[in-house]
Design a protein around this nucleic acid. Structure first.
Length: 445
RNA sequence: CGGAGUGUAGCGCAGCCUGGUAGCGCACCUGCUUCGGGAGCAGGGGGGCGGAGGUUCGAAUCCUCUCACUCCGACCA
């Protein structure tokens, strides 16, 4: 993409309403615009990040054997009356009336709708196990939205639902989700720690929340530092192998890690003092096993091998997609701007032409731009007629992990400059070498 | 919902107390000079002050109502 042909309305000054880094930077980098309290428009740059996050989620969910679908944002109140949550949910649910005076609502979650779909289509244990998921906008009428997309009223969420014959099967689905989420977050370049959590309005016995450590997090967290040392790396997972999946879950859930809701000082005290950590975290996902909580009242039953009608065991699993954009920035920025992890960056490399209009520099940039695009490196070429400082400042602000700087001085020596946004370190090399280096880096994400 | 506060140009703000027909910086446009970390000079365009009503010869400034947004708190992916 050429910057002169893109829409990137960056702000030089900090918007008054933004209190925390991610909100401030998302507004300044031209990623979002507030439409009204807790509701945002996603501008082109922000949308690219959102799409990257969605893509990683889809890949990891499908890898785990889960099936994508899409349900509407607007739902009928009927199903919610059936489950008993129409009244239970309270004012957080945005209620709407259509022209025929029918009660509708903007879905805050989808257990009712998915259960209805399931019960109408599935009748036999032979059709199980089944895990369906979607990435769709949700609306929860927060009393007080704040922190930009981290605590909006409208937000994009991946929500998945598993249907299993037995508790054991459903717990395997739970474990599958825990593992797939670990992989998902790691690919996004964030450390999200699974923590035992309280269940909240979704309900259920077993639940873990995934929290990204950040000073601005809303939850206090207590954990054993051993958990932050774990990493998934290149290991392969056979999601059909229950013991193997369980082993990974055990590995990540063995170290103490809890939010303030479930924190137990006595247990925490057993962690060696030098590994005991307290901090704050941003919740970016949660998984639940809730058994037959919805299947019983909503009569989602299958016929088992013995010919008996039994309610299915269910669980639900969520990832806060739009919130993750903010959480990643909270965890990865500096005073100059955002620092995107390679996995979610909106463009993989920024190309800065230091002397726009100079025949040599222009030609070198054009050819490098084409080369980068051909290599799948999604370049953002700053071809504006701006001074070097302004181009650098823009690149630093929008936070592309790599920058190639092209100027007459380097071209005279036959080199361009490759700079890491994270470390600030620069290296001179030929244009071809820079393309090769970046290809190598991105081959691993 | 309780408490506090703010709405004036795309962004950041001044002006309001002590009414006289709107200003500064950045951004934007034109020209010249500049050009490896948000350039300089000169010229220029854009708002009628969140909305409605009122007081007044006259309202961004005073009064009434109203809407929106922000912050603190209780609540939440």
């Amino acid at each position: 993409m050429r910057l002169t042909q893109y829409f990137l309305p960056v702000l030089k000054e900090n918007p008054a309403e933004a209190q925390i880094a991610s909100h401030r930077l998302m507004l300044r980098a031209g990623m979002v615009r507030q439409a009204s309290a807790g509701i945002y428009s996603w501008l082109p740059l922000g949308l690219r990040v959102l799409r990257r996050i969605e893509a990683i989620i889809h890949e990891e969910q499908e890898r785990a054997g889960h099936i994508p679908m899409l349900m509407p944002t607007i739902q009928s109140a009927d199903l919610w009356r059936e489950s008993g949550r129409y009244d239970a949910y309270g004012p957080e649910m945005l209620r709407i009336r259509d022209r025929h005076e029918r009660d509708m609502l903007y879905g805050p979650t989808n257990e009712e709708l998915i259960t209805d779909i399931f019960r109408n289509a599935v009748g036999s244990y032979r059709d199980l196990p089944l895990t369906l998921y979607q990435i769709q906008w949700k609306f929860r009428d927060e009393i007080r939205p704040r922190f930009g997309v981290m605590r909006g009223r409208e937000f994009l969420m991946k929500d998945g639902y598993n249907f299993d014959l037995t508790r054991e099967d459903a717990l395997h689905a739970y474990n599958r989700h825990l593992v797939s989420y670990l992989r998902t977050y790691e690919r996004m370049g964030v450390k999200a720690i699974p923590m035992r959590a309280a269940s909240g309005p979704i309900g259920g016995d077993d639940t873990h929340e995934f929290l990204v450590l950040a000073e601005t997090g809303e939850s206090a967290v207590f954990y054993d530092s051993a958990v932050t040392d774990l990493s998934f790396g290149d290991r392969q997972v056979d999601y059909a192998d229950r013991a193997a999946v369980r082993a990974i879950v055990d590995e990540w859930t063995a170290p103490y890690a809890r939010t303030d809701e479930t924190h137990d000082e006595a247990v925490f005290a057993e962690v060696p003092a030098e590994r005991r950590r307290e901090g704050r975290g941003i919740e970016v996902g949660q998984i639940f096993y809730f058994g037959t909580k919805y299947s019983e009242p909503m009569k989602a039953v299958v016929v088992n091998e013995a010919g008996e009608r039994v309610p299915v065991h269910m669980g639900s699993h969520g990832i806060g997609v739009s919130r993750l954009v903010g959480a990643i920035i909270e965890a990865s920025h500096d005073e100059r701007g955002i620092i995107w992890p390679e996995g979610v960056t909106p463009f993989r490399v920024g190309l800065v032409n230091l002397k726009q209009g100079d025949a040599g520099a222009d030609a070198a940039c054009e050819s490098l731009y084409a080369e980068l695009a051909r290599a799948g490196l999604e370049p953002l070429y700053d071809d504006r007629d701006e001074r070097a400082g302004a181009k650098f400042a823009t690149m630093d602000l929008i936070g592309l992990p790599w920058r190639i700087t092209v100027g007459p001085r380097g071209l005279a020596k036959g080199v361009v400059e490759l700079t890491s946004r994270r470390t600030g370190e620069s290296e001179e090399m030929s244009a071809a070498a820079a393309v090769e280096r970046l290809s190598g880096i991105y081959a691993r994400v």
